[in-house]
Lab assay of single mutants.
Amino acid sequence: MDSLVVLVLCLSCLLLLSLWRQSSGRGKLPPGPTPLPVIGNILQIGIKDISKSLTNLSKVYGPVFTLYFGLKPIVVLHGYEAVKEALIDLGEEFSGRGIFPLAERANRGFGIVFSNGKKWKEIRRFSLMTLRNFGMGKRSIEDRVQEEARCLVEELRKTKASPCDPTFILGCAPCNVICSIIFHKRFDYKDQQFLNLMEKLNENIKILSSPWIQICNNFSPIIDYFPGTHNKLLKNVAFMKSYILEKVKEHQESMDMNNPQDFIDCFLMKMEKEKHNQPSEFTIESLENTAVDLFGAGTETTSTTLRYALLLLLKHPEVTAKVQEEIERVIGRNRSPCMQDRSHMPYTDAVVHEVQRYIDLLPTSLPHAVTCDIKFRNYLIPKGTTILISLTSVLHDNKEFPNPEMFDPHHFLDEGGNFKKSKYFMPFSAGKRICVGEALAGMELFLFLTSILQNFNLKSLVDPKNLDTTPVVNGFASVPPFYQLCFIPV
Score class of each variant (00 low, 15 high):
150 R>A: 14
13 C>A: 09
295 F>P: 01
68 Y>D: 03
111 G>T: 03
285 E>P: 04
427 P>A: 10
461 L>I: 15
157 R>C: 09
234 L>N: 10
408 D>C: 07
177 V>Y: 00
212 W>K: 07
433 R>P: 06
321 A>N: 13
52 K>S: 13
221 P>F: 09
43 L>G: 13
190 K>G: 13
32 G>C: 04
22 Q>R: 15
461 L>V: 09
333 R>M: 09
485 L>G: 02
6 V>R: 02
108 R>K: 10
218 N>V: 13
365 S>I: 12
12 S>L: 12
129 M>P: 04
52 K>A: 11
240 M>N: 03
434 I>V: 12
292 V>F: 12
391 L>D: 05
401 F>G: 04
106 A>T: 14
271 M>P: 04
235 K>L: 07
456 F>R: 00
272 E>S: 12
189 Y>R: 03
232 K>P: 03
373 D>M: 02
145 V>C: 05
412 F>L: 01
431 G>K: 05
323 V>M: 08
98 G>A: 14
187 F>L: 06
97 R>F: 05
114 F>P: 11
49 D>P: 10
432 K>G: 11
305 T>R: 04
305 T>D: 04
33 P>F: 00
435 C>V: 03
172 C>L: 11
277 N>A: 14
271 M>R: 09
294 L>I: 14
321 A>C: 08
100 F>T: 09
172 C>V: 06
308 Y>P: 00
262 D>C: 14
362 L>G: 04
371 T>F: 04
14 L>A: 09
275 K>R: 12
107 N>K: 07
38 V>F: 14
382 P>S: 06
90 L>V: 10
388 L>Q: 04
137 G>K: 13
424 Y>S: 08
15 L>F: 14
172 C>S: 15
488 I>M: 12
346 P>N: 05
42 I>P: 04
392 T>W: 03
416 G>I: 11
427 P>Y: 05
276 H>P: 11
282 F>K: 03
194 F>R: 02
439 A>M: 09
451 S>R: 05
407 F>Y: 04
88 I>R: 06
22 Q>T: 14
316 H>Y: 10
173 A>D: 01
489 P>Q: 02
76 V>A: 04
181 I>G: 01
272 E>H: 11
285 E>T: 11
466 N>A: 13
74 I>S: 04
210 S>E: 06
317 P>S: 07
118 K>T: 10
157 R>V: 06
139 R>L: 13
261 Q>V: 15
259 N>V: 07
41 N>T: 07
296 G>P: 03
470 T>Y: 06
442 G>K: 12
75 V>N: 00
67 L>C: 11
90 L>I: 04
165 D>I: 00
270 K>E: 13
32 G>V: 00
461 L>M: 09
335 R>P: 03
158 K>G: 08
171 G>F: 10
241 K>V: 04
335 R>C: 02
437 G>H: 04
128 L>G: 10
301 T>M: 14
355 V>P: 01
375 K>S: 07
111 G>Q: 05
277 N>C: 13
250 E>P: 03
13 C>K: 01
26 R>G: 13
87 L>P: 02
285 E>C: 07
448 F>M: 05
193 Q>K: 13
319 V>M: 12
350 A>R: 01
33 P>T: 01
329 R>Y: 12
294 L>M: 12
339 M>L: 13
192 Q>F: 10
181 I>K: 00
68 Y>A: 02
6 V>E: 06
222 I>Q: 03
27 G>C: 11
392 T>S: 14
89 D>P: 03
336 S>W: 08
64 V>G: 01
471 P>T: 03
471 P>I: 04
398 N>G: 12
478 S>L: 09
159 T>P: 01
336 S>Q: 10
26 R>S: 13
140 S>N: 14
284 I>A: 06
202 N>A: 12
261 Q>R: 13
337 P>I: 11
86 A>C: 14
320 T>G: 08
340 Q>I: 08
163 P>I: 06
289 N>T: 10
59 K>Y: 06
244 I>C: 12
160 K>V: 07
188 D>A: 09
372 C>E: 15
392 T>N: 14
401 F>R: 04
451 S>L: 03
439 A>D: 15
319 V>G: 00
98 G>P: 14
11 L>A: 10
264 I>C: 08
329 R>G: 08
350 A>C: 03
348 T>P: 00
278 Q>V: 09
339 M>H: 06
115 S>W: 05
399 K>R: 10
35 P>A: 08
348 T>N: 01
399 K>C: 11
187 F>R: 03
151 C>H: 09
416 G>S: 14
91 G>Y: 04
156 L>Q: 00
126 F>I: 09
8 V>N: 00
467 L>Y: 05
423 K>D: 12
257 M>S: 12
221 P>R: 08
279 P>D: 15
464 P>N: 07
168 F>Q: 15
339 M>N: 10
204 N>C: 05
27 G>P: 13
289 N>F: 06
251 H>T: 04
289 N>H: 12
466 N>E: 15
274 E>K: 10
450 T>M: 02
359 I>T: 15
128 L>T: 13
193 Q>N: 12
277 N>Y: 14
464 P>R: 08
170 L>K: 00
106 A>K: 09
321 A>I: 13
122 E>Q: 15
243 Y>R: 05
53 S>A: 14
77 L>M: 08
98 G>S: 10
250 E>M: 07
52 K>M: 10
442 G>A: 07
40 G>P: 02
77 L>W: 01
422 S>Y: 05
62 G>E: 00
339 M>E: 07
24 S>L: 12
214 Q>P: 08
339 M>Y: 13
370 V>R: 03
97 R>D: 08
281 E>L: 12
172 C>F: 03
207 I>C: 06
436 V>P: 13
146 Q>T: 09
21 R>S: 10
339 M>R: 05
78 H>G: 05
183 F>Y: 05
277 N>H: 15
401 F>D: 08
301 T>V: 15
383 K>V: 05
417 G>C: 08
478 S>N: 12
406 M>I: 12
260 P>S: 09
273 K>E: 05
105 R>A: 09
54 L>Y: 03
2 D>Q: 07
319 V>Y: 09
389 I>H: 02
193 Q>M: 13
54 L>E: 00
48 K>A: 13
346 P>R: 04
371 T>K: 06
91 G>S: 13
61 Y>M: 01
130 T>Q: 13
271 M>T: 05
